[in-house]
Nucleic acid binder design. Structure first.
Lengths: 341, 341
DNA sequence: TGTCATGGGTTATGCGTTTAACCTATTGTG
DNA sequence: CACAATAGGTTAAACGCATAACCCATGACA
């Protein structure tokens, strides 16, 4: 291991105490001569001193680790990190955390108890939870009082948590209004009805769609199930001129299903997704969607983590704005007849 | 924080020494009466004792942390974790590591020095490196002698590293042979020529394609650049009946480009990718590709990590097999005329 | 009766860092 | 000249756990 260089090694070599070296490292140089400071710094550099987190962890109470826990829901079939939304969030979090000097430890689990254990054993400085929207945060909060922020969670009465969410309702509303403006009158809503956010997105859609009619297809959480569901509801689907799926993945998949069955998109049916994943650009036609900025949410998360650390107990919720991103999967309907089928 | 329960708390409450409690925890019960063992276990359970890694890290020399470092290459434009191959690898690694009782700490960087620092400060039990195929491992090895495995790396003369790779050459060969069997005679190879693996995939392709003719399009690493490149080489592209891109992302993108310009896939041009990402199933037509099993590679990685830990110095390379996955993006050419254009 | 092994533990030390409390020699002040 | 303040450090304890070395009482055995 090319024997680790420790503070005591540096101290001994210079005939100083470890306290002095430690103080230099932390910039507490008020009571140390410039001369000494320079000598210490030079040797630290020369010997390539790298602090041992083991010692720091024990001596202080902060670890610089942020635990990011993703809910390993069955719907992902063991591939959570491959989900476009999850990986985009993780990516943004990784860069923001590193920028703030944190380390990111990742865990995937369904088990709420494991989250506590995970946080506790590593003395986490904070936690970020993805996909635990309907969980009981109160328990977590009781067990430990480190800051943790939840993506797409909700605020309980006693407001003991930081919730970071996007304006799902408005996103849906924008889609509804847009389709309406493009001349659509009958739209299919596609959702697995699982995550809390879906409800809001659809409610928003209905508002924006005005007097347009909506149908609702509740699809299962596995791909094969969804394809089967589409087949079984073939008639209903063909009654619509547009579809709004609550995620890009579902939207792309639905487009794919339509195309496979000879229905061209957007000529025959227009499709809109949600999230603005990378796949929106690579599918054909490019998918119109609602964009959420993973980078911005990650920045907010890190900011919240810091703020909650400083004045703990203070808590906030942040609802980030979303924005319709128009691409090629929606067509304008001009003909009045066509509109009625 | 609901005050952490420590070993000493348990010990005191039972009137025992910390050593005894620690021994019970680690199952070293040879010299402890069954009676005592039970009492200790019961209290550990009741008080919900969670070990502090801080103490363990310092007392022993292993941290149970595996650092996973991904090369934050510019080509990803700050979104490494969103790359389909990276996220699939990470997902598989996460589950395998957890299964083996490890914790996964992730880092994205281009800087080789940071890798050393990262590993050293956390006393990592091992490292997994993604995308550092052309780096100088020797340096890393000098700095510290923890096991580390490299995805798609290479073995140096003095064999001081574990390389985990797939049979890129054979993958390419299978594609070439398949296209040839399907009646194709002119194929375009698409690659950014960056990562070492590309060379092998293309070399393999040429072998499998036999007397078929290949053209080669070296594309830039950013999306806009690639689209421009396709446009500029419009003529050359149209000379071919098939294209083999070195990754699914490039393949899907290329399909998209073709469709946008009125060339249908696979009727006019067939396309094959590499990796078997999730997008293969969601793009239209579904992409024929070469499958690599991220799960299998992750299992090997964890196995290697363990083995190298036990008898350090011993090193191995593993070349995992790949397999052609036929979907809908390749068409059989029967007409002899058509084959010649 | 003296010695030895064994069961059932305890004591003490070390891991690398931080930090509050303490120390000493020199200079400044009334 | 007595005293305080300051510069420039040092000492020692603490953090939570693991583990090698040690200890004592009891029973077996020669």
């Amino acid at each position: 291991m090319a024997e680790r260089v420790r503070i005591v090694d540096i101290a001994q070599e210079l005939g100083l105490s470890t306290a002095t070296v430690s103080n230099v490292i932390h910039g507490k140089t008020k009571k140390i001569s410039d001369e000494t400071v320079k000598r210490v710094q030079a040797l630290l550099e020369e010997r390539r001193y790298i602090p041992s987190m083991a010692g720091i962890l024990l001596a202080q109470n902060d670890s610089r680790i942020i635990g990011v826990v993703v809910n390993d829901h069955e719907k992902y079939e063991g591939k959570v990190l491959e989900d476009a939304f999850v990986s985009a969030s993780l990516n943004a979090l990784l860069f923001e955390l590193e920028r703030a000097g944190y380390f990111m430890m990742v865990k995937a689990t369904k088990d709420w108890g494991e989250v506590v254990r995970f946080a506790s054993m590593w003395n986490m400085d904070g936690m970020v939870l993805l996909g635990f929207c309907d969980s009981d945060y109160k328990k977590l909060r009781e067990k430990m009082h480190i800051p943790f922020v939840v993506y797409d969670g909700f605020i309980e009465e006693n407001r003991t948590i930081c919730n970071l969410t996007i304006d799902n309702y408005d996103g849906g509303r924008q889609v509804g209004a847009y389709l309406r403006r493009m001349g659509h009158r009958r739209a299919m809503l596609i959702s697995d009805n699982d995550i809390c956010v879906d409800q809001e997105r659809m409610a928003g859609f209905r508002e924006g769609f005005l007097d347009g009619q909506t149908d609702f297809l509740e699809v299962p959480m596995n791909r094969e199930g969804r394809y089967r569901c589409y087949k079984e509801n073939w008639e209903r689907i063909q009654m619509c001129t547009a579809a709004f799926a609550v995620s890009d993945v579902y939207a792309a998949e639905f487009m794919h299903f339509l195309q496979e069955h000879g229905i061209s998109v957007p000529e025959k049916i227009s499709v809109v997704g949600f999230d603005d994943n990378a796949l929106c650009e690579t599918c054909f036609p490019r998918l119109t969607t609602v964009g959420q900025d993973a980078g911005e949410r990650a920045r907010m998360a890190v900011y919240a983590l810091k703020r909650l650390r400083e004045d703990e107990g203070d808590v906030f919720e942040e609802i980030l704005p979303v924005q319709l991103i128009v691409r090629d999967s929606v067509r304008r309907i001009t003909d009045e007849k066509e509109r009625q089928e």
